[in-house]
Design a protein around this nucleic acid. Structure first.
Lengths: 241, 241
DNA sequence: CGAGAGGTTGAGCAATCTCAACGGGGGTGG
DNA sequence: CCACCCCCGTTGAGATTGCTCAACCTCTCG
């Protein structure tokens, strides 16, 4: 607990937590900080866990805290009053969330799988940000990437067919998991989540996956494991240049 | 030209350019910098103009420069190979664009109206950013807002009906122009641009606007001027809480 | 073994798209 | 100065993608 662990094991996780909460992506965050900064950064965080399905925060709530995901997957979404839902992203270990510069969260966040995260009081985090320009630069880079991803998703939602959406989605997941062509991809999220991410219904997602399976573009093992025999072929379907 | 103008007149525009290039939104950028910083910032910029329809840069080109829009409107868009287009945003005076942390632009930018902008070499701007933490914080705030707007747009594209999309769009424009309920809104962009922004066809945009006019939700003066007699009513149509 | 949740498949439907015709305004050339 | 053309926007009719509603299946958990 109080003993002086090597810095890397305490990063992003709070000093009292073991190193199994940090993975390779965490290191990317921490590479921009020196030892002393890492220590202060860690000291500012507490940790939290969520079971799958539990909500971290709701859109509209006061944005008092921000989080760094260290394990598992979280989905972000927005709702219309009648319950229609749009999932705006799936976060994995190493991602930040809740950094609202306004007063309230602009989306809801819910655990897809069991999740561990680091929790920062908003004011504390903003102070750290001022003290550590490298961290701020890193966050700006992250925001910039997220924005690019959001624009890619707008293209998908506004202009792609159901088949193109699914192909794009599978390729994105495959690249994120850094698997080779022969290794399968794990979806982790439900059909309902996929549908709400791609702007479709669960029936259309199901049907489209079945069609792609029949065409040989993918193979399914259970509902969650997907083999992509030929990524280039899928890329063609996805409508990517 | 070389004379020492008051600082505010030179901001974001390059020292050699008159103050009519700056509007209230520019001041928001500059409020975070002190006099000396403003001077250096201005000195780093050159200016450019574009006619309506001219392209500033294309997606995929090396991102060597970044820009600050001082007058007019620019649209950002992405294309699929077969020509389907998604407009991801309309920028107005005070907005930044082209700040890519990757090597290439991730979208194309084209003038909607005649446009003036300040141009920064990428490397120069990044250096300024390092020297001026306030500027970096400001950019992070902007990126954060843009991200929130992008997520709102994903909700629109993924889950809203044509009528809801148009209502949302008109309200957003109205709020951006800060007009009262009785003042009309100027669209500036073509039906084709609106369609590609909302993930619809021009025919659907046209039909939906006509229907809304028949219902009394809006009134049209020409193709570009829109009166919104009751924003609250439009907000109900838009499906906003 | 029954119940419930999540997923698949089918049939019909509806919102939106496609294709096509038409109209008005502005610029241009005779 | 006027006729023409072209671009943009509107409207109509039919086609189509994806949605809705419903049945059924499978797996898990009590």
């Amino acid at each position: 607990m109080g003993q002086s662990d090597p810095v890397m094991t305490t990063v992003c996780c709070g000093a009292q937590v073991a190193c199994d909460q940090c993975d390779a992506r965490d290191l990317a965050v921490c590479a921009v900080l020196d030892e002393d900064e890492l220590r202060r950064f860690s000291a500012a965080a507490t940790t939290a866990r969520l079971e799958a399905g539990q909500t971290l925060f709701h859109e509209g709530e006061p944005a008092d805290e921000m989080f760094s995901l260290t394990e598992g997957m979280i989905k972000l979404y927005k709702l219309l009053q009648d319950g229609r839902r749009q999932i705006t992203g799936f976060l994995v270990a190493g991602d930040f969330l809740g950094l609202a510069f306004g007063r309230t969260y602009v989306y809801s966040a819910e655990a897809v799988t069991p999740v561990r995260l680091c929790r920062f009081r908003r004011a504390v985090f903003l102070r750290l940000l001022e003290e550590m320009p490298h961290l701020e630069r890193n966050l700006l880079g992250r925001a910039s990437s997220e924005l690019a991803a959001a624009q890619e998703q707008m293209l998908l939602l506004g202009r792609k067919t159901a088949r193109e959406r699914l192909a794009t989605f599978l390729l994105t997941i495959a690249e994120r998991q850094r698997r080779t062509d022969s290794e399968p991809v794990d979806l982790l999220m439900s059909r309902s989540d996929i549908a709400d991410y791609l702007g479709l219904t669960i029936e259309t997602v199901s049907r489209t996956l079945s069609t792609m399976r029949r065409l040989g573009a993918i193979a399914l093992d259970g509902t969650s494991r997907v083999y992509i025999p030929d990524r280039e072929a899928l890329r063609t379907i996805a409508g990517v240049g």
